[in-house]
Design a binder for these strands. Structure first.
Lengths: 206, 206
DNA sequence: TGCGGAAACTAACGAACGTTCGCTACCCTG
DNA sequence: CAGGGTAGCGAACGTTCGTTAGTTTCCGCA
């Protein structure tokens, strides 16, 4: 059990302030282009004071990437235990996923994009966390296949494709366009469950 | 007419070598994390010699981003003039796009990801180039709507969604999985033309 | 009221950054 | 064989980087 796997230390409100300021800067400029001096200035303190809250720049990134991943997955993972109609459940999951990502656009996009700057040890830890969600969706699709409600030859690939599709939305969607994010999410959910996964319509009084 | 819009100077083979080495490093580590010293070392020359071929680090990025975009678009833009069956044409375009991106995976991914590090002037130039392709697809979908071969309420959004979907494939696809890139491309083309754009089947002797 | 610890400060560190300099070795052309 | 351009070199520029040391300020609690 290495220290990198231990639970995160309890952090104060100032640490959260730093995390949020850094998140915003990482989103705008990328991890490599943002210096500790810029983060400190954004918070309104001197650079050295940052080290009262984080031991390194990488720890700021790690803390926030871990937080958004555990938050997001913790919020959505229980869907896989739902015993109801699988196409309906997945449909709902997709919509919620898309809306959540949009509402946490800065954090989620910065986190996904800048993950690669984590130390090797932290990177494998985060990757493992994300993997549980991917695997959950893959297994869900496979279970749907067995029930006959999905028709999808490659569940794991479909899970990756699905996630890639819905995670990318934030890079091009605009709120001032013809669709709201909820309407778009609905269309994506339809496209994926029926087009990609070959779901059979519910309510066909089977 | 500013100098940034002038045609690129003719560059020698050494410049191309530098460009390719830099591309690979940018792909692996990101623009901000790659130094001129690392690029020079990868080529096998000293750092200062790089400046015999490029005036700045940003010019290396700009040259290569511009090249991949003009190359790619030049290779695919004429599709929009084809007078044949639009769903068939778009289907073919999608497959070719996906395969091309996969075969130029390092360049295309690095270019898309690191574009944001361009100078403001260069960024607007590149964005304009990319925009012509997006608009081409959007107009193509709209024309298909008018012909009645597509049924898509938001052509511009669909074009962006379409491009986002197929550009993201390279981030998760593996060649050792159950599908070849050509098979996957085929499935994406089906999903998009029928599922997303509501194409009517050709050969329905309408 | 005074003590202790958290968190701010000033100042500085060595390393790396992108870039410029003066110079040299080579090749092609006249 | 002289002259000019190309492309390499070592050394150094000023700046910024992440980080540390030492010191001071502030605040809750005995």
């Amino acid at each position: 059990m290495t220290s990198t796997m231990s639970p995160l230390p309890q952090r104060g409100p100032r640490a959260m302030e730093i995390e949020m300021a850094a998140t915003r800067l990482f989103y705008e400029q990328g991890y490599g282009q943002v210096g500790m001096r810029a983060i400190a200035e954004a918070v309104g303190i001197k650079t050295s004071s940052l080290y009262n809250h984080f031991v390194s720049k990488e720890e700021i990134l790690y803390t926030f990437v871990k937080r958004i991943n555990t938050d997001f997955i913790g919020r959505h993972i229980d869907v896989f235990d739902d015993e109801g109609d699988k196409p309906t459940i997945l449909h709902r999951l997709i919509v919620e996923h898309i809306v959540y990502f949009w509402e946490h656009k800065y954090e989620m996009q910065a986190g996904m994009r800048e993950m690669r700057n984590l130390s090797p040890e932290h990177l494998v830890e985060i990757t493992a966390i994300r993997r549980t969600y991917q695997d959950g969706i893959g297994a869900f699709i496979a279970a749907g296949n067995k029930q006959g409600v999905f028709r999808c030859a490659t569940p794991r690939l479909a899970a990756l494709a699905l996630l890639d599709m819905i995670n990318g939305i934030d890079t091009w969607f605009r709120e001032d366009g013809p669709l709201t994010i909820e309407e778009l999410a609905e269309q994506y959910a339809e496209l994926i469950t029926f087009g990609l996964l070959g779901a059979t319509r519910n309510g066909d009084k089977q």
